[in-house]
């Protein structure tokens, strides 16, 4: 029996890894940079300090991984939200191209921005 080759498991693996990375890393980062520093509950790190952290290759690698996986997590989940929530299953191929294509473009931009930080 021949096994149908569907790209679905790979999309799901990216979605799952992205979901795990997002769940582990985003809450603390968003809490600090989106709420705690802007509200002045803690003072934001100085530019020198943050630049030193950011230019570290390990940081860049982690952030790049987080960006790519989180974007593909979004693409997969949002694709199904459009299918089910807005009942757009008929437009499935277009939606898939837009979602995963968007994540791919976002990943390239992320790579560009992060390499520039080096």
């Amino acid at each position: 029996m021949t096994t149908k080759r569907s790209p679905e498991p790979f999309a799901w693996l990216l979605f799952s890894s992205g979901g795990m990375a997002a769940a582990m890393l985003i809450p603390v980062l968003l809490l600090l940079f989106g709420i705690v520093f802007p509200l002045g509950w803690l003072s934001a790190p100085s530019h020198d300090r943050l630049a030193a952290v950011l230019t570290h290759p390990v940081t860049l690698l982690v952030l790049f991984g987080l960006c790519v996986l989180a974007l593909f997590h979004w693409a997969h989940r949002f694709r199904y939200t459009l299918y089910d929530g807005l009942q757009l299953r008929k437009a499935a191929p277009v939606i898939a191209v837009l979602c995963y294509g968007g994540a791919a473009v976002g990943s390239v931009i992320a790579a560009f921005v992060l390499i520039r930080a080096l």
Binding site: M1, T3, K4, S6, E8, P9, W12, Y80
Partner: peptide, 18 residues
């Protein structure tokens, strides 16, 4: 396992579930 895989691992199998 192998016999059931084509149906289960298809787009209308487990992958349709959200």
């Amino acid at each position: 396992n192998e016999d059931r895989r084509d149906v289960l691992a298809s787009a209308e199998g487990v992958w349709a579930c959200t």
